[in-house]
């Protein structure tokens, strides 16, 4: 800056020399005859700029800036609200999910208990039936066995009587019966 100023001063001095030679005033800045003109137009300029700024430009820009600030604040608030809502919705969803899960568990347990009960009842019934059938079968087997023994005894008696007859002896019926009974016991 310093060199610039000295250069400028040098230039100014040079110009002053020129101007003096030409018979005109040195620095145009010091030509007081132009001062009223400059001051007059400067005043008009400043008034014009001031009117434009204070009437139109500054209120408008101020309003735009305020509006932007308001919009940003509102948007942030809305975003916050939406975030809360989303969190609420997620909580509700989680709750619904856990409820549904619990319900499903309950239904599963209930169904299982019902099936178990039915199964138990069917098993008991089947057991009872099996037991009844077995008892009946045993009875019948016993009957068959008894009748078979009886038949065996009769056959043995007849056979014994016939054998004794064939040997030529008169068999005593009671003796044969006693002998067969003794044998069958053996």
């Amino acid at each position: 800056m310093a060199t610039e100023s000295t250069e400028a001063a040098h230039g100014a001095a040079e110009a002053a020399g020129h101007a003096a030679a030409a018979g005109a005033p040195g620095m145009p800045q010091l030509d007081f005859s132009t001062f009223p003109n400059q001051i007059f137009w400067l005043a008009l300029t400043l008034i014009a700029i001031y009117l434009v700024l204070s009437r139109v430009a500054l209120p408008r820009i101020g309003a735009v800036l305020a509006e932007r600030k308001g919009t940003i604040t509102n948007d942030l608030a809305a975003a916050e609200e939406l975030k809360l809502k989303a969190e609420e919705a997620e909580q509700a969803y989680q709750k619904a999910l856990s409820d549904a899960r619990a319900e499903a568990q309950r239904i599963v347990a209930e169904t299982r208990a019902g099936i178990q009960k039915e199964l138990d009842a069917a098993t008991a019934k089947a057991n009872a039936e099996i037991a009844a059938r077995a008892a009946e079968s045993e009875k019948r087997i016993a009957e068959i066995r008894a009748s078979a023994m009886e038949s065996v005894a009769a056959v043995a008696r007849d056979t014994a009587g016939a054998i004794v007859g064939a040997l030529g002896a008169q068999a005593d019926a009671s003796a044969i019966e006693a002998a067969v009974a003794a044998r069958l016991k053996g």
Binding site: Q38, I39, W41, L44, A48
Partner: peptide, 22 residues
């Protein structure tokens, strides 16, 4: 004092530039 000069012109352009920008 009322003569339009080159100073007037460039001051007026400054006003126009202000209006144009703001």
């Amino acid at each position: 004092f009322y003569t339009p000069t080159n100073a007037t012109l460039w001051m007026a352009l400054a006003v126009l530039a202000t209006i144009g920008l703001l």
